[in-house]
Amino acid sequence: MSVGIVGYGCYIPKFRITVEEITKVWGENPENIKKGLGIEEKSVPDIDEDTVTISVEAGKNALLRAGIKPEKIGALYIGSESHPYVVKPSGTIVAEALQLGTDLMVADLEFACKAGTAGIQCCISHVKAGQIEYGMAIGADTSQSRPGDALEYTAAAGGAAFVIGKDPLAEIEGTCSFTTDTPDFWRRDKQDYPRHGARFTGKPAYFKHVVSASTNMMKKLGLRPSDFAYVVLHMPNGKFPTRAAKVLGFSMEQLKQSLVVTRIGNCYSGSSPLGLCNVLDVAKPGDRILMTSYGSGAGSDSFVINVTDKILERREKAKKTEYYIKRKQNIDYGRYARIMGKLKTE
């Protein structure tokens, strides 16, 4: 029984702010930052966009590609660390907007940047268990960063949605996770901005989990890096996935199609899912993809995905990732600060 991605779709808000624009405010050297983080600019949500609106737009695109009636979706998971409500699900709003009907299981997930991929795993299990015909998993965020923090250069907005079921455009051949209690990044209740462990977010956190999950995944299916056409890794910046890919034995050729972070920043729960969308936009039938997400706190979900010939017709049915990346309007820090609610008005 072949279960996998039946439809996928993404959404990235239109506004961008460049590294230069942010460095102007804090007196940093833009070249150092760009080199250090491997990013040029990041996406910024408009004042009326949030995780719910991004999820709806991405979900619409995924349904277009899946070509199924919305009410056939039996489960909806939305992974985000910026759900608009602390109590009240994003999922019910998204389900109503996507007209998924009422014979539906909904849950909001949170696991830093990997809650979206956790949703994919849940959907795979439901479908394989025969509980539902199709499930939808969305990873989306409008991530927050304290003004002046290094995160401000990368914390971006965007998301991707996946319809999981049979007759996929990309079969999910296997998935596994690697999880430990590693406090590298967190946000307490009622706090506007997260805190993080700076360099501690690297070796014991991102690299340990991404490399372990990816290695375990390949070992379980008896695969090697050379068996893959593409690799997609969580992208907190441009540097980490590049280095992790190298450690795992992947080439830049295998990574670069997924490396959307350099142009849109880190979309948190939407990060590796957006990288996967960009790969699916160009992949050929038979291409194998390794995707590994990372969520602080900490864990990684790894997937082996095998593109089928269904990709050819379905991917043309909705707007591609490159469309959303290129559709942009740069804004200055003043407007950014206003939109993100960083100006005190009351």
Partner: peptide, 10 residues
């Protein structure tokens, strides 16, 4: 000009 509907916060 032509427009299309998008989902947003009102």
């Amino acid at each position: 000009k032509k427009v299309r509907a998008v989902f947003r916060k009102i």
